[in-house]
Design a protein around this nucleic acid. Structure first.
Lengths: 239, 239
DNA sequence: CCAGAATTCAAACGAACGTTTTAATCATAC
DNA sequence: GTATGATTAAAACGTTCGTTTGAATTCTGG
């Protein structure tokens, strides 16, 4: 008798998205089945295809529902920072907080659902399926370009190539940690209670780690001044 | 006519392991099929089950074939370092090089196959399937315990909890990067040529990033002296 | 109230999956 | 050569998958 008035279309769609989010998170894209998703959502099997068209499209919808607002927010925050700095380069800590802090704060603000989506994002970043990588790269293109540029300006003495590498490392540390599929977690006696605590702890810990890595001394092989060409060793021919 | 003398048992098993390694890497565990693996290996479909018993067992064999020698080597290197230091704590850089450097150097030493396995490891660390996490945690239990202890001794002023967190971050940065399923890589104009160069570049870059992160200033919320109990916020009951 | 659209439902489709079975082939030792 | 055990081969097993179908149901606007 729980006020099942109308609200049909939205209800089924939303229930599907929520259930799909959880199942995709728990099983991965290939491991999740439409039957389990629709079953958990309490809707008919065919409803998934009626509302989304295919399993791929459903996954894409799950991803975009939150990724889009996340990345819009990231752009908005960066815009705000750059406007306030008017012309001056931002501090690396500001940039990292705008990128990674926005992610974690949004997840915290959404409670358990936010936690689920956080883990789904982390896991999705290592999904092998082609179309998933396409979706991700399209969704992230603008944001990454903007943040890359901001980091270049913030760290003019660091070669751009090095910054890109370290951006990779930071993305990895973050997505791996939030995915929560952690091998270390299974081995270590991990003294943790509620998940809320974890998330609220995570941000400051992660931020100081990332900042330390981003501003670490350059490795010996990379020359401190940006060389005009040349990879690590300059594209040697086979001797 | 290529000297197909004898070498039958070994041949089929080895071909299966190599093919499985590549297919699991490219498609993930769920996405890979026995038919594609045996097809690529050029052996009959049933050969997979004859030699390994099941798809799970085959995956486990693929993993253990290289993981075991890797982790034995990691233990051996750490033993050597601690013996030479006799009694004194190791430097963090030594520990990280023993753990992550050993991984990358072994991969480099094995050429293309090493690169494939490196990516498979990175990807496996985020596989959702239960039995995979079990395999990983068993295989890594000893190594992680030893390296955790070494880090505790190397950084006595850092709370153990913080070190564990940073170990997570370091594992994440590494496994994500070597998995090579990189979203950033799809977006960024990634000026890279041969994969060999990448791998040889990666170690010094990764090491300085990890070291910078590991030795970063402690976050504000974590008190610098290790508190007797208490998580980030000390296990509050719901108010 | 009723036409017409939107949505749900039960049932089935064909394909692909991991696995098993049974027979054929091969190597090896007597 | 022939028996024996190990390996390979071809075919099929039952299950599950994503997807489709067509009728039943519910909502919507006149």
């Amino acid at each position: 008798m729980t006020t099942s008035a109308s609200a049909d279309i939205r209800d089924t769609r939303a229930r599907l998205l929520d259930a799909a989010e959880a199942v995709f998170m728990a099983c991965g894209y290939e491991g999740a089945s439409m039957r389990q998703i629709t079953g958990d959502a309490g809707v008919n099997l065919a409803a998934g295809h009626y509302h989304f068209g295919s399993k791929e499209a459903l996954f894409e919808a799950v991803l975009n529902r939150r990724l889009h607002v996340l990345n819009q927010e990231r752009l908005r925050v960066l815009d705000g920072l750059e406007a306030k700095a008017n012309g001056a380069a931002l501090k690396p800590s500001q940039i990292l907080d705008a990128f990674f802090g926005t992610l974690l704060r949004m997840a915290i603000a959404h409670g358990d659902r936010g936690q689920t989506f956080l883990r789904l994002i982390g896991r999705t970043f290592t999904e092998p399926a082609e179309f998933i990588r396409t979706v991700l790269s399209e969704e992230f293109a603008d944001v990454l370009e903007r943040y890359k540029a901001a980091l270049f300006r913030a760290l003019p003495e660091v070669p751009k190539e090095e910054i890109i590498w370290r951006f990779h490392f930071m993305l990895g540390a973050t997505s791996y940690t939030i995915a929560g599929t952690d091998t270390l977690r299974l081995v270590t006696d991990w003294q943790t209670g509620a998940a809320d605590d974890d998330l609220e702890c995570l941000l400051p810990r992660l931020m100081s780690f990332l900042l330390g890595g981003l501003r670490a001394p350059l490795p010996a092989t990379a020359s401190p001044v940006p060389q005009p060409r040349g990879n690590c060793r300059t594209r040697r021919k086979k001797p």
